[in-house]
Amino acid sequence: MDFSFTAVLGKILGESGYAGFFMDGGWKNLLMILIAFVLLYLGIAKKFEPLLLVTIAFGMLLANLPFSNMISNVDNDGLLHWLYTGVKLDIYPPLIFMGVGAMTDFGPLIARPSSLILGAAAQFGIFTAFLGSLLIFKFPVNVAAAIGIIGGADGPTAIMVTSKLAPEYLSAIAIAAYSYMALIPMIQPPIMRLFTRKKDRQIRMTQLREVSNTEKIVFPIAVATVVILLLPDTAPLIGMLMLGNLFHVCGVTARLDETVQNALMNIVTIFLGLSVGATAAADTFLTWQTLEIILMGLVAFALSTFGGVIFGDIMCWISKGKINPLIGSAGVSAVPMAARVAQIEGQKENPSNFLLMHAMGPNVAGVIGSAAAAGFFLKLVPMLMG
């Protein structure tokens, strides 16, 4: 055996990841690494959903470095493979929902229950994109359902539905979902201005009534009971969302509330992002279907915003000008970013406008609505495929 410097160096370089770029399909890995770099730039420099986009992008980077063995190797399964079991077993998304529940104030929704209508209307894009994916792009019904969920602007829900119905498309759908969530300040305002009148956007809404602590405690218990009895498949998401909120409002679980909001939420976010990013292997991600998914995801998100705004217009008319239709756009479940966009657009038209708390009602209703839509698809799709 030749142990010369040249031979040893040649063997090291021949078995290195650099050599992998010159093998069949190596260019695909290189392209995926460049995509990961772009996502890292958007997450770090542009602050687009950085907590998840940075971890997803880094997981994509690790998965596409040749011979890194982060997913699997000859002898055993790699680190990211085991982290991904938390997605496959539906562990991470419900835990994220628990954290969201602990950080969410349902008071505006309780004070104005009609916000539920706006939250429901903003799910319009989910079902429209489902039909479009099914009829236009001819996706199988399970994949079409997973694509449609992007319209709910709810990353954990999209991940959970996709991991159950179409796991081979998880990376494309998850990246589309979180990318459009990050682009809410760019996507929503043109739609909001196009489908509302200037004088309606200037409407100042009266202060919401004060919600008692008893109401706040009863609400998560009642919603969990009613919704899960109606749609049992929503139990992981709705159950954890309401449990997290109960920790926050009941007044006797401060330590649990703090843990769920901070330590647990941060740990699960890291595991979820890395494992989802690791599914973005070059062979499965670099396809025309990925582009179709990204396109339909945009359509779903835009139509969800449209549905919420149109029903905002209707409620404005019914209330004789007491409800600003801009809050309808917050019916998508990107909490609290969508509510902030409604606030910003309202203040552009009327600097004395303060719509944030009014928009939070439809916003948190959208979280419940997207979870209900997910439960509906998880029940419907197996029936259609069976």
Rank of each mutant, 00 (worst) to 15 (best):
W82F: 15
F139Q: 12
N142A: 14
A45T: 13
G59P: 07
L135Q: 13
T104H: 05
N73Q: 13
T128V: 15
V74T: 14
F130N: 03
N64R: 08
M60K: 05
V100L: 15
W82P: 11
L135T: 14
P93Q: 13
T128N: 05
L53S: 02
D105T: 09
Y169N: 14
N142Q: 14
L118E: 04
G119V: 05
P113D: 11
Y92C: 02
G152P: 04
N73F: 13
L79V: 02
F58V: 07
I147D: 03
I110K: 11
L135M: 14
P167L: 03
F48I: 15
L134Q: 13
A120Y: 08
E168T: 04
M70K: 01
V141T: 07
D77Y: 13
G155R: 00
I159Y: 00
A145T: 00
N73R: 11
A121Q: 10
S115T: 11
G132M: 10
L53D: 01
A158F: 04
L83N: 06
N64M: 02
I96L: 12
G132H: 02
V54R: 00
G152N: 06
G101I: 10
F58T: 08
F48P: 01
M98R: 09
P167V: 03
F139S: 11
P93A: 09
P93W: 09
S72C: 02
I71K: 08
F127D: 00
R112P: 02
G148T: 00
M98A: 15
M103V: 00
S68Q: 11
I149E: 13
A166M: 05
F58Q: 07
S163T: 11
A45S: 15
D90H: 08
E49A: 14
A102F: 03
G78V: 09
F124D: 07
L131C: 08
T104P: 10
T85N: 10
I149G: 07
L109R: 05
V87C: 07
S72R: 00
N64V: 06
V100T: 15
L79E: 01
P50R: 11
G59A: 13
L134I: 09
G86V: 02
D77F: 14
V87W: 03
L80T: 02
K88Y: 01
M60P: 07
F67T: 03
G78H: 10
T104R: 04
T85G: 01
A122T: 10
L118F: 05
V141Q: 07
P167N: 08
